[in-house]
Design a protein around this nucleic acid. Sequence first.
RNA 1: GGAGGAGUGGCCGAGUGGUCGAUGGCGCAGCACUGGAAAUGCUGUGUAGGGCAACUUACCGUGGGUUCGAAUCCCACCUCCUCCGCCA
Length: 427
Amino acid sequence: MLDIRQIREQPELVQTKLDLRGADVYDIQPILALDKQQRELESNRSQLQARSNEIGKLVGQKMAAKTAPTDPEILALKAEGNTVKATLSELEPAERELKTQILALILQLPNLPSDNTPVGKGEEENVELRKWGDEYIPTNPEILPHWEIGEKLGILNFESSAKLAQSRFVTLIGAGAALERALISFMLDRQIAAGYTEVSPPILVNTASMTATGQLPKFAEDGFKCAEDDLWLIPTAEVPVTNLYREQILTSERLPIHHCAYTPCFRREAGSAGRDTRGLIRLHQFNKIELVKFVHPDTSEQEHETLVMNAEAILQALKLPYRVLELCTGDIGFSAAKCYDLEVWLPSAGKYREISSCSNFRDFQARRGDIRFKETGKKGTQFIHTLNGSGLAIGRTMAAILENYQQPDGTIQIPEVLQSYLGRTVL
RNA sequence: GGAGGAGUGGCCGAGUGGUCGAUGGCGCAGCACUGGAAAUGCUGUGUAGGGCAACUUACCGUGGGUUCGAAUCCCACCUCCUCCGCCA
């Protein structure tokens, strides 16, 4: 969430940056108005409170001096105390209500884009930074889409999955299931080697956790909810892993913290009706390796670059052609200040498709989740910076392999680095 | 699910109605001692909001209540521990 003090002190700057995400979408004026009211109320209230505290102390002193409880002075003080309390009982709820309203409004505001995030209205204005692996783009024109070759090989089953659950689910069978397991192990091993500590978190989380990372309150319709229990199926491991440190004050020696996690992810894909209806690209349930970083604010930009490199390393090891996009202000996610997308080449589509999204949230999530650190020898606390990225989405990687590694005879060559994990060289 | 116990500042841990935001220790910072360090001694050190200086308010798991006054009493809830029950 944004800092109310920054909104108050630099309203034009904040509004200008919010407008970069979309003109006339966000308005900080109501917040400024409520904030002003709230501070006036607070000033009144705390003055009264001070008097109330004073009365309490005076009575205490008299009692300690063995003054009779029926002494007129004591009775007068008690009477005044009651009057003050009556007024406070009106001011307090009013102030609380204002604070609640302000918080609700601030939680609706997205992060401010970084100064070096390219300005643009939407995805067409994202900037392509680099491409890798052109030489691995298949030249064979006969490539079947991954869902066709997958069903042909008997390793993907969409029809039964729709029966079990709904559309947008898949069941992996035999070598398909094994390939997924191999990819999970391979990716985790690589990221652990790169210095990330593996965690296996809960995949159901409460509303507070979803709010800290920015999924709530604004995107409630995107999540699967277990209403009876105030629990949500996680849309990404980012949620539980980031919340591991919610409401904590870390010492600066512990930073940076790098975690990787394999989890299933669940998304309702509300608003995606009709898009990517076939195959592994857009499912309600998919698996993903997530990378999450907690870092000192001074290092977050550099940590962002290495995060992307760690994700790219997986694609390079698998020899899958991809490109790196720098998302523009109109396309970065709600909580992100800056974001790189990795897109893998998908022959059946004849284009690159997102396989990883690496974001720097700066202090946006830390503020929501109250994740702070204390620098040794310095006074006070600061919010840490959080970053995360996929490293990588498993289903989309499978899709990319089934297509890019498809042989003219309909078999699938297994990427070299996976062969030892899978125990075979071809599907 | 049942019974009992507990939740206090970065950490540990005292405090059961009255100048308690809270004794003490660890940690951290400064100073002294030292060739330097360790050890030791002295001093300082919670977080957050408002004025942004003096000052002031809130915070002792969370939310209510009693009282002039609550970390301390009452109610509800949450979490953790122990035992019992059930169970992958």
